[in-house]
Structure formats: C-alpha cells, structure tokens
Amino acid sequence: MDLLQLLISGLANGCVYGLIALGFVLIYKATEAVNFAQGDFMMLGAFLTLTFANSNELGLPFWLACILAVAVMAVVGYLVEALLIRRMFGESQIAIVILTISLGIVLRFLAGVIWGHEPQSLQSPLAGKEVRIGSLVLGFDDMTIIIVTLLLTLGLYLFFARTKIGLAMQAASQNQLAAYYMGIPVKRVHALVWALAGGVAAIAGILFAAKGTIDPSTGLLGIKASAAAIIGGFGSLPGALLGGLIIGLVEPLSSRYVAAGVSQIMPYLILLIVLIVRPHGLLSQVRAKKV
C-alpha cells in the first residue's frame, strides 16, 4: 500500500516532467529547434497563475487565472518565435540552442526581479483535498495532474496525426523548402507551434504549482524534462510522456530502495542506458537515410 502511494505521487511528478517534455517535443517536431527555455516558460506560467489567482495579488477566480496564464504564455511563445527565433532562420541548430539557453537565463532573472527569489505557493482549490480508499490517500492535485496530462497528450497526438494544420507542422519540419512549395505558411506555422508550446508550458506550470512551491530556479526543471524527452525519443509526443513517467517513478523508488543520494543520478543513468541501447530513444523518430 505504501508502495502504491509512492507510485501515485511518482506518476503525478512524472506527468509534470512529461508536460514540460511535451513542450520540447512540440517545438522540435514542428521546427527542428530545441527550446532550452521550455522549463522557464513553465516557471513563468506558474508565476502568472499565482499572480492572477492568489488572494494577496489579483485574486481572480482560479479557472479564470488558469485561462489567462495559458493565454499570456501562448502570446509569450508566439513573440519569442516572432522576435528571436525567426531571425535565426537557416542558422545552425546549435546557435538556436545557445539562444534559448540565454533566453532561459534572462527569463529566470526577470522572474527574480518581478517575483523575488523566495519560494511561493499557489492558492489552489485542489490543495489539501483528498479521497481515501482504505489506507491509500489520493490527493486531488495528483489525480488532476494525471488526468489533465493524459487528456492533453492524447489531444496533441490527435492534433498532429489528424488535423490539416498538425500535418502541415510536421511537413514544415521535414523539409522547409518543399513545405513552402506545397503552400504551407512555414513562418506562421512555426509561430503557432511556439504559442502552443507556451500554452502547454503554462498548464505544466499550474499543475506543478498545485503540488508545491515555486521560485525562479524552478525553471531548471527543464533539464530533467529534456532528459525525459530524449528517453522517449525526441519528436514523439507519447514518448515525452513515457519518458516523464519513467523519470517520475524512478526517482522516489530509487531513493527508497537504493539510497537517497543515488536518486538524483538515476534519471540520468537511465537516460544513458536507454541511449546506449536505443540511440534515438524508446519511440525512435529517426529513419535511415537513403543513398
């Protein structure tokens, strides 16, 4: 029973990692760029919700605060693409990596200036509520995280697999020039994807803040999430969730059954093992080139 409790909270944590990883994968899938500021987008989303919802701040209804935060982060994502990333069109991938790492540094600095470096908590209507089944305690926050993540992943998966714009996004990443010729507005598609990734980051931020405190360095969670995205196979949406869940589960289990100090290493150890066995992740998205 104790183990089950551990697994549920691990799953919930894993879902948050998975959601941030989802942001990585969205952008990569559609634009081939890697956004190392994704974790910081999440942190911003969490702080925005906090500002909108907390009674000592704006005190808006919680649902409205969530919608506003998602909308603002979508705009932020859009603007980042339109103002920064678009200018890097045709530059090497590594230049974009450097750009987004630097952007992350600046975002963490700005968050520190606006919200300070003290940990703050979101006044969530979910906090503290729980269902008891025998000795098992199911927190509302954990359950919400798991359900929202599953729905969101499914929705995005269907979006890419079924809708015209989703397919256009994939096409634009495979070959930009060919996509242009096929009449796909590549630039607008890119901006839309960044907006989408911003929105997803905000949702991840809300769910993360619902469980604990946030401060500007929360953005560094993006590092662990990038590991999750790689484990799943960078470019695969279900893979991102899978990677997130693996990391979420491994952390508490290893700290319990191996040693507390080792649990920090375990996600990265698993990442390396996965990559050695499957160089492109569990759900590989890479195909062999034809010569």
Binding site: V97, I223, I230, I265
Partner: peptide, 14 residues
Amino acid sequence: GIYLAIATLAVSVM
C-alpha cells in the same frame, strides 16, 4: 545532435 548534447548534459549533472 541533440541526443548527444543531452547525454553529455546528463554526464555533467551526474
């Protein structure tokens, strides 16, 4: 590419 970059990042964290 990115797979190697994050694998090395993992080494640094570890």
